[in-house]
Design a binder for these strands. Structure first.
Length: 591
RNA sequence: GGGGCGGUGGUGUAGCCUGGUUACCACGCCGGCCUGUCAAGCCGGAGAUCGCGGGUUCAAAUCCCGUCCGCCCCGCCA
């Protein structure tokens, strides 16, 4: 008899049916006479009963079974005696009275419990990922991930998008993240790069006339990792022709609604829009967490001309002094204040000024410079009452904002500002600067990527004041995490060339790196734009997980290794020889 | 590249600050009892080069130095 049902699907309506099940032995409760076995598969689990008086042979076999053995049983579904119903289990009103049992595969005792909470630390679970994946949290999340990818495909298909695959072996690009390189055996000394995103290919598809493209694209970036950053990840990559930003935003919003619905969440959220400038001014972040207030304020005009040189000189030189009220911070100890100062310095700010406002007046390292009068105004404007603290940073506008933004985030953790109500707050951030200064390279680099279109109103500044040029770009942010972003692209090769020039890229260099794209523009390029959404991050946030490892079947560690396969690993010398690669390892590495 | 935290039977941990008996406890595992359990219960048992290397000491899980691995953060990355 072949498998007739899955374990998790059996209900009262199946009572009386003869069934054949296969699955893993989960729990075995041997009462001496009766043996109960919870049989588990992907769909759930069901209780098997082995009664020596009814099926002696099967009972003998079940006595041998241990956790995680793969077994096959035949039996009859029966409603349980009322007092033995397990309401915690979907299959809890029935059990299978086993008539025949067979062992399919025995199993060693697993290194950790296959339970909702295995109790084991993550590194061990990563080494035995195939066992960890048996646990229901991962089974659930990978099921949701699957359902969400189906929903994305259906939605985008309905919206007229074609799914088109693009190469994994492509060429390295000078901009953006570090590339993963793949040596070419056939072309000694040449390398492919794995795509950081299919950016250029999807633009070329627009030029090819595909109008609306999408792909669940695997992307690779060789940068240091975080809980929300894996070296390889999946983007919902979208590109559309003949569109303005609003078109892309609306398609994306529709897609997010579908995904929320699949995840069983309220599916009609607001998608408020905010400029980059406003996001930094108000929240000190280009990915603001709008689930709580505590916004920053600009106090530059109040401290202009004051005795405290750090502030007055910033005001004179066109910088900004930003302020954040910390309710209850008036009694904060020196330890916490020092931590905030340290955090400010790690954000490259000159420093952090704190003012504690209490019954006995103002307490601050700079109280004597600012004076009671200005301090009173500052507190009034920022609504900093007695018992509160005022935190201020005077610096370059962006640094001042970002620093207080980091502090706002830290305080949100300390003070539990984030509501615990499972809310999902989206917001669009628009009009990012086209370019930004790279301290490392000492030149302007693209903030998004070099194919982003400048804002039409700022075109003439491209040569005169490139840093001030806004772009037609947008990021979607959810609960303070960037989910994805995109832009309208340059579809005219003269503008694209001007952007390359602003990036300090000589025409010859642009031609050699991106000649194929610039050439393509000459053959009738439609205006186009798109977006790329971090699929893993979406799954993570909508499933309430805290790490991408929890929503990825086979994730990598913080040092980009795979503890299960032990990748990356050394390779044979013959393999290296074939690729004409000689190693030059630092001292102490290699074997 | 920098900072923080962690590594003790199969698993999770206590012990470490203040060095010194047989390294605590729980889970799991093995055996026994048990016919309505459901992460079964009760009784018994086995199981640890204290991440690795070096140093200090009469003596190191414990103190010192180095190193590896994991996690979090900054830089980096969109």
């Amino acid at each position: 008899m072949d498998r007739t049902h899955t374990c998790g699907e059996l209900r009262a309506e199946h009572a009386g049916e003869k069934v054949c099940l296969q699955g893993w032995v989960w729990h075995r409760r041997d009462l001496g006479g009766l043996i109960f076995v919870d049989l588990r598969d992907r769909s759930g689990s069901v209780q098997l009963v082995f009664n020596p008086e009814e099926a002696a042979e099967a009972h003998v076999i079940a006595e041998e079974w241990r956790a995680e053995w793969v077994v096959l049983i035949e039996g009859e579904v029966a409603e349980r005696p009322p007092e033995t119903i397990n309401e915690a289990l979907p299959t809890g009103v029935v059990e299978v009275r086993v008539t025949r049992a067979d062992t399919v595969a025995i199993a060693e005792t697993p290194p950790f419990l296959i339970e909702e909470d295995s109790g084991a630390l993550e590194d061990l679970r990563l080494k035995y990922r195939y066992l960890d994946l048996r646990r229901s949290p991962l089974q659930r999340v990978l099921r949701l991930r699957h359902k969400m990818s189906i929903a994305v495909r259906n939605y985008l298909d309905e919206q007229g998008f074609y799914e088109i695959e693009t190469p994994i072996l492509t060429r390295a690009t000078p901009e953006g993240a570090r590339d993963y390189l793949v040596p070419s055996r056939v072309n000694p000394g040449s390398f492919y790069a794995l795509p950081q995103s299919p950016q250029l290919f999807k633009q070329l598809l627009m030029i090819s006339g595909f109008d609306r493209y999408f792909q669940m694209a695997r992307c690779f970036r060789d940068e240091d990792l975080r809980a929300n950053r894996q070296p390889e990840f999946t983007q919902i990559d979208i590109e559309m022709s003949f569109v303005e930003p609003d078109d892309v935003l609306r398609v994306t919003e529709g897609m997010m609604r579908c995904l929320l619905e699949v995840a069983g969440l309220p599916a009609d959220p607001e998608f408020p829009r905010m400029t980059f400038r406003a996001a930094l001014d108000r929240f000190g972040s280009d990915a603001p967490d709008t689930r709580y207030g505590h916004e920053l304020q600009d106090v530059t005009d109040i401290v202009r001309g004051c005795e405290f040189r750090a502030f007055s000189s910033v005001a004179e030189s066109g910088g900004a002094v930003k302020a954040l009220c910390w309710p209850g911070g008036g009694t904060a100890g020196r330890g916490r204040l020092d931590k905030l100062v340290e955090l400010a310095k790690s954000q490259r700010a000159q420093g952090l000024v704190w003012v504690q406002h209490n019954e006995d007046g103002f307490k601050s390292p700079v109280a004597k410079f600012l004076g009671d009068e200005i301090l009173s105004v500052l507190c009034e404007v920022t609504d900093t009452g007695q018992g509160d603290a005022l935190l201020m940073v005077g610096d370059d506008w962006e640094i001042a904002c970002l620093t207080l933004g980091a502090i706002r985030k830290k305080l949100a953790g300390w003070e539990s500002w984030i509501p615990d109500d499972g809310s999902f707050n989206f917001c669009w951030i628009l009009e990012f600067p086209l370019l930004e200064k790279s301290e490392e390279e000492g030149r302007m680099v693209a903030r998004h990527h070099p194919f982003t279109s400048p804002h039409i109103d700022d075109l003439e500044m491209l040569e005169s004041d490139a840093g001030a040029v806004r772009s037609l770009s947008y990021d979607l942010v959810l609960n303070g995490m960037e989910l994805g972003g995109g832009s309208i692209r340059n579809s005219k090769d003269d503008i694209q060339r001007r952007v390359f020039t602003a990036l300090g890229m000589a025409p010859e260099e642009a031609q050699s790196q991106f000649g194929f794209l610039l050439d393509a523009f000459k053959y009738g390029a439609p205006p186009h734009g798109g977006i790329a959404m971090g699929y893993d991050r979406i799954v993570m946030l909508l499933s309430g997980e805290k790490s991408l490892r929890s929503v990825t079947a086979f994730p990598k560690t913080a040092s980009a290794t795979d503890l299960m396969t032990a990748a990356p690993a050394a390779v044979d010398e013959e393999q290296l020889d074939a690729l004409h690669i000689a190693l030059d390892l630092p001292d102490g590495s290699g074997d």
